[in-house]
Nucleic acid binder design. Structure first.
Lengths: 70, 70
DNA sequence: CATATCTATACCCGTTTGGGTATAAAAATA
DNA sequence: TATTTTTATACCCAAACGGGTATAGATATG
């Protein structure tokens, strides 16, 4: 239920953006955004941060088994 | 003052571990751990998570300009 | 059903990571 | 100061990322 991928997915849905448009806004490739939403774990932090910044968020250490912020 | 690198550094100091020993415990290379503590932004999420797990933490979206958890 | 839109998976390939190692610098200790 | 420990920087190279693209599947809309 949690995970960064689903977080991005939810945020993107809130803004009614397609993967293509979000990738464009974030400056990442479409393929990357898809792998991100699907929970690929080996992605580069800087690229993930490019997407998170659009939502005022960034990668940081959080307790395992936390609840994802709204 | 914040940043994942400094977070790791602080946690490592709390346990009185050298970079070498922490890298070994985390199962990552020594060079990687050093780049991590020095704030390199292009590292892979899975490797960073291997280190964070030793402190019960993992990468997740957090608000920009937050305070790092103790 | 037909059409358009969005998403998922696979391929090619240049660039970069990350491990290991070696060397140097810095810090701690006697 | 001398010695040891710890940390920082540079090199080599296999492996993987990430962009682009093509294709197929899924979903929505008329």
């Amino acid at each position: 239920m949690d995970g960064i991928g689903n977080y991005i997915k939810r945020k993107r849905a809130e803004l009614n953006l397609t993967q293509e448009k979000l990738a464009l806004k974030a400056g990442v490739g479409l393929r990357f955004l898809r792998e991100l939403e699907q929970g690929k774990s080996t992605l580069r932090m800087d690229k993930v941060n490019q997407v998170l910044q659009l939502f005022g968020q960034e990668l940081g250490p959080v307790p395992i088994n936390r609840n994802v912020p709204e």
